[in-house]
Nucleic acid binder design. Structure first.
Lengths: 149, 149
DNA sequence: GTCTATGCAAACTGTTTGCAATTTA
DNA sequence: TAAATTGCAAACAGTTTGCATAGAC
C-alpha cells in the first residue's frame, strides 16, 4: 500500500471528493490529479510546476488558470498552505503533515523543513501578549547550506 | 532636534552620502528623499507608497523605476529589509532599528513588530543543526488583532 | 437540464530593463 | 567631461478574469 502521512491516497481522495460534494461543488479529474501531485510530492511546488507534473506523471492536461483556481479552492478548504520564500513566486504544499517551518538556502534555494517545539510555544505567547488570536505562522530562516558555503 | 533611532536624519544622511561617494556611486536628491521617507516612517512601505510619500511630503517627483532601483541599491548596502507579508507586494523598511519580527492581522493587515530573545537564539541552533550559515530570518505570525476579532 | 469547472486568451499587477536625457563629481 | 542616475515606456513574470464550451450531478 502506497501510504503517506499515515493514509493511502485513495482514502484521502475519497474523503476529499465526498467533502467537495457535500459543499455543493463539483469534482473533476483536474482537482483529483492536482491533489495527487501535492499528496505525493515532498517539495513546495509552484503553479507551473504542478501543471507540468500533472502532465508528465499522469498525462493529464491542466490549464494554468485551473491550477490557480484549484489551488485557491484548496486553500479555502484549508487543505494547503502557500509559501513565498522571497522570490515573489508562490509555492504550495499539502497541510496534512504536521506544521513545520523552513530553512532556505539563499544560494541554491534548497528548502529544508524543521519543527521546533520552543518556537511553536513562544509564538502562542507572543500572540497572546499582543491580544492576537493566532491563526498561523511562517518562519523562514535564510542562510547558506553546506554545499554552498 | 528631530531625532529618531537615536540619531538625527541630518547626521544619518551625511554619513550615507559619504558612504555612497566612497563606494564610487553618485548621490541624488531622489536617493536622499527616499531615504528620508524611510527614516521617518514607522510602517513598511511599498515602492508605490514611497514614491507617493516623496511627492506629497516633499513635492519631489520620483519615477517608480527609480524607487525600485534605489530600494535595491539600499538593500545591497544592507540598509533596508524587504518583507513580503503574503500578498505578493514587497514592503521595505530601514534596518537601523534592532532586528524584529512581525505579527500580521489577516483581517485589517495591521503589522505589529516584536522581538523575542528565545526565538532569536533558537534560530541559531536550528541553522547550526542543519549545517547552515545563518544569514537572516523572517518570522511572520498571522492572526486576528484585537479590533478584528 | 442546470449549474459548476475548464481552457483559452486577454487583462492586470508588481517589477525590471533599454535608452536617451540629465545630473553628479 | 566622463560616469552614474534618472524618467519614460516597453517588456516581463506571475496571477486573475471573462467568456464560451465541456463535464458533473
Amino acid at each position: 500500500m502506497n501510504k503517506k502521512h499515515g493514509i493511502t491516497f485513495e482514502t484521502f481522495l475519497k474523503n476529499f471528493k465526498l467533502h467537495v460534494s457535500k459543499l455543493g461543488f463539483k469534482n473533476s479529474i483536474q482537482k483529483d490529479y492536482i491533489l495527487k501531485i501535492l499528496f505525493y510530492c515532498d517539495e513546495h511546488l509552484t503553479a507551473e510546476q504542478i501543471a507540468h507534473k500533472v502532465k508528465v506523471e499522469y498525462n493529464i492536461d491542466v490549464g494554468i488558470a485551473t491550477v490557480y483556481r484549484t489551488v485557491k479552492f484548496f486553500e479555502d478548504l484549508n487543505l494547503i498552505d502557500s509559501l513565498d520564500v522571497g522570490d515573489s513566486v508562490k509555492r504550495y504544499e499539502l497541510k496534512i503533515a504536521e506544521h513545520h517551518d523552513h530553512l532556505v538556502c539563499t544560494s541554491c534555494h534548497k528548502i529544508i523543513e524543521f519543527t521546533d517545539e520552543v518556537i511553536e510555544e513562544k509564538q502562542e505567547d507572543i500572540a497572546k501578549e499582543n491580544n492576537f488570536i493566532l491563526k498561523d505562522h511562517a518562519m523562514i530562516i535564510y542562510g547558506l547550506c553546506e554545499d554552498c558555503q
